[in-house]
Write a protein that binds this DNA or RNA. Structure first.
Lengths: 200, 200
DNA sequence: ACTAAAAAATACCGATCGGTATTTTAATTG
DNA sequence: CAATTAAAATACCGATCGGTATTTTTTAGT
């Protein structure tokens, strides 16, 4: 046994890692089983031996894509000392779009939210939960900053948090569809302004 | 002749109006020819007599969806007198999400941008052009307001315009996927703040 | 009303869809 | 190493995919 994971677990992980970018790029309906077999070099029989159906693969891929981003975020948040710095992590992370922990196809939360919101409830719920968790993380940071005296007492954490997320996700969409990364940079300037404005 | 439009033109229009919401809801890959025949009550032969292929229908539907929104926007812009009021039109329009000129499925620009950006270049270009036109409209309004002395001279029109669009589109995405219209309302408050901040 | 032209319906095409039962191959354990 | 088990490949399923050639029905001009 070359690994502490069973063969099945290793194959399952291999399928997820290999196809996560495909689902993120082509969407759920746009990704076919033959896309998966072609990318992995495995057969349908093998894939269906490790997953119940196409939906299960897509869900596992979304979780994988999300966890990769969250890992980077949490690591950078831990490195930041002040609450201001912690909020700025979100600006910095999306600044160099290219060398990001993003899977091919861009932000999986955005892609899944739009792709699945009228067609696949399980995927939609995953995207919704991701947004809500993201919002909560920012709200907690703002509240922490208020208690620490870093931020003004009269800020509305929810509005700031939601606006930061909307700017980032909207900015990614704009930059991607117009093929112009500079647009995202300009929008991130506004996020930065939002963060600066709440400082005491 | 009951109409000044030919039969073919009327049928073509009927197909577009009837299926525009389907493409906007299910996406290009997720919409099948049988979805179209089912919704219209027509047969495949009839649809392919009026369109060359599925892509042509989707493109016509996008144009139709976009023009409906633009009609409302232009009308409201004409009614507004000051440049501040004109910018605020975008806040007001998206405030009551429900009774909007939006087709089923939400904002077609956002949906098409995400749905098509890695899979269909013609649709992607349409979405990109729509974003760029929207941005230009806002930039022109800001420049007008600066010249009229309504807005500060040191504003960066592109940044404001892009941020407004990102907030609105990001807000729509968040509200839709979390099933919570209040989120969009909070984000629109930030758009309002952005507009207020540039006033002299 | 009759006829030529246009539009819509029917019937069909090969390809691919997601999924499964069965066989073959590879990994694991005594 | 042999036997058992687990995993992957093969072969197949009905259904649906986008698209087309042909026939029938409507429409429109005289």
């Amino acid at each position: 046994m070359k690994n502490d994971l069973s063969k099945a677990e290793r194959t399952r992980q291999y399928i997820i890692e290999t196809t996560a970018g495909i689902f993120n790029t082509k969407g759920y309906a746009g990704t076919s089983l033959s896309d998966l077999t072609e990318a992995t070099g495995l057969t349908k029989g093998s894939i269906y031996g490790n997953f119940g159906n196409k939906e299960e693969v897509a869900l596992a891929c979304f979780d994988y894509n999300l966890s990769k981003i969250n890992q980077t975020v949490q690591q950078r948040l831990a490195e930041a000392t002040t609450y201001h710095q912690k909020l700025m992590v979100y600006v910095q992370i999306y600044q160099d779009f290219a060398k990001m922990p993003f899977p091919e196809g861009g932000c999986p939360i955005l892609n899944t939210a739009i792709d699945a919101d009228d067609t696949n409830n399980l995927l939609k719920d995953r995207a919704a939960k991701a947004i809500q968790a993201w919002k909560k993380r920012i709200v907690d940071l703002i509240r922490g900053g208020v208690e620490a005296g870093e931020f003004k007492a009269d800020v509305v954490p929810e509005q700031i948090a939601l606006s930061m997320i909307a700017l980032i996700e909207g900015g990614i969409m704009i930059a991607k569809v117009t093929n112009n990364p500079a647009s995202l940079a300009k929008i991130l300037k506004t996020v930065e302004m939002l963060i600066t404005q709440i400082k005491t």
